[in-house]
Structures are given as structure tokens and as C-alpha cells.
């Protein structure tokens, strides 16, 4: 930045410029000529844009694609998506930060969401979450987030591991669960929601 001259008639506020970083250019729509976009990501976003009457509807799928591709919604990734969609990165950032599932700070590759909403916490989710957080505190590979109701109160307390719902998770199963996550194994297969029969069809009195 050019040296800012003092006004002859007044002083500038001391310390005012301490946090200025004007080296960055304003963030307009990224120019394709200077924004390289991985071909795969471009193809994915363009395919999504084609699905909707208004291409902007593809903002969420595009951000999801960025997150898959870069591991998180990094500024670089957002710029790439903005470039393909002809939007400003600011627009996509506004969208990304609104939704809980988009990470706008770098994060672990494995996403473990622990539901701590009413029904789960009535069944011990807070302790469960605490236990999981303790166990993974220094594992940069695992992101643990306590989440609001994940829509599986029938298996409370429950956890979503990279999108796979498991529950009810007992405290003494946490070690095994995290072990599965660390080793890229199917998490707690016996507790996965996908295999659970409907409560409605079970004979009475067969609950836990």
C-alpha cells in the first residue's frame, strides 16, 4: 500500500492501521484465466448446475463437491467453485458458513457427529460425546462435532460416522467405535441403523 499521507489539518488515529492487510485484491468473480480448477471438480459442478432451472441452485451440491475434493471448503476450493459457477467466492462463503455440514476451517478427514439433542441427551449423549471427544482430542484425522438432532432418536444415543448412523452407542463401545474409525473399518456394524427393523413390526415387548 502506498504511504498514507497525513492530513495537514488532523492526525490519524494511532494504531488504526495495525490490522490492515490490503495485499489482497477485492474478491470478485474469479477469472477463469487465472483460476485453475481441477477437471473432476469442474465436471461435477457443471453436472449439478445442469440439473436445475437456475444454476445457482447448485451452490450446495457444489460446496459439497468442494468439500469432498479438498477435505473442507477451503478458500481455494470456494474460489474454484465460484469460478465455475460465475459467482463471487463471497456468495459461496455466505452459503457455506450457514450450514453445519460445511467446514470452512481445515478439519479431520473423518467426520464424527454426536447427537446431543433432547432425545439423545435423555439417554446419555452428553457423556458419550464427552468420552468421544476425550478419546480423539489429539487425533487430527477425526473431527468430532456435537450435532443437533440427527433424526435417529430411536437409536439414542447415536453417532453419525462419515454419514453412517450407529446407535445406541454404549459408553463401553466408544473405544471400539473410534478404533473402527481410525482404521477405516465399518463402524460398529452390529449397531448400524441401516440394519434395524422397524419398531412397528416387532412383537410387543421386544424393545431394549
Amino acid at each position: 500500500m502506498a504511504e498514507v499521507r497525513r492530513f495537514e489539518h488532523g492526525s490519524r488515529v494511532p494504531g488504526w492501521d495495525a490490522s490492515v492487510d490490503l495485499r489482497k485484491d477485492p474478491a470478485g468473480v474469479p477469472d477463469p484465466a487465472t483460476t485453475p480448477v481441477p477437471a473432476e471438480l469442474r465436471a461435477e459442478i457443471e453436472a449439478q448446475m445442469a440439473k436445475y432451472p437456475d444454476f445457482r441452485s447448485a451452490a450446495l451440491p457444489a460446496l459439497a463437491a468442494v468439500q469432498r475434493h479438498h477435505g473442507w471448503c477451503s478458500p481455494e476450493g470456494i474460489e474454484q467453485a465460484a469460478c465455475v459457477m460465475r459467482l463471487t467466492p463471497g456468495y459461496l462463503t455466505a452459503v457455506a458458513t450457514f450450514y453445519d455440514m460445511f467446514d470452512t476451517v481445515p478439519t479431520g478427514r473423518n467426520r464424527v457427529y454426536v447427537c446431543t439433542n433432547i432425545s439423545c441427551s435423555l439417554r446419555g449423549a452428553d457423556e458419550l460425546c464427552h468420552r468421544i471427544e476425550q478419546l480423539t482430542a489429539d487425533d487430527a484425522d477425526i473431527q468430532v462435532k456435537h450435532f443437533e438432532c440427527l433424526g435417529a432418536c430411536d437409536i439414542a444415543p447415536m453417532v453419525s460416522v462419515n454419514g453412517i448412523y450407529v446407535g445406541p452407542v454404549e459408553l463401553d463401545e466408544v473405544d471400539e467405535l473410534i478404533d473402527d474409525v481410525r482404521n477405516d473399518r465399518d463402524p460398529l456394524p452390529r449397531k448400524q441403523l441401516r440394519l434395524r427393523p422397524s419398531a412397528d413390526t416387532l412383537p410387543m415387548g421386544d424393545g431394549q
Partner: peptide
Amino acid sequence: VATFDGHPYVA
């Protein structure tokens, strides 16, 4: 209220 990744709002 903010801008993308700490870029200044210059327009």
C-alpha cells in the same frame, strides 16, 4: 457481516 477470506471490500 464479512467478506470472503479476509479480502477487503473494495468496489
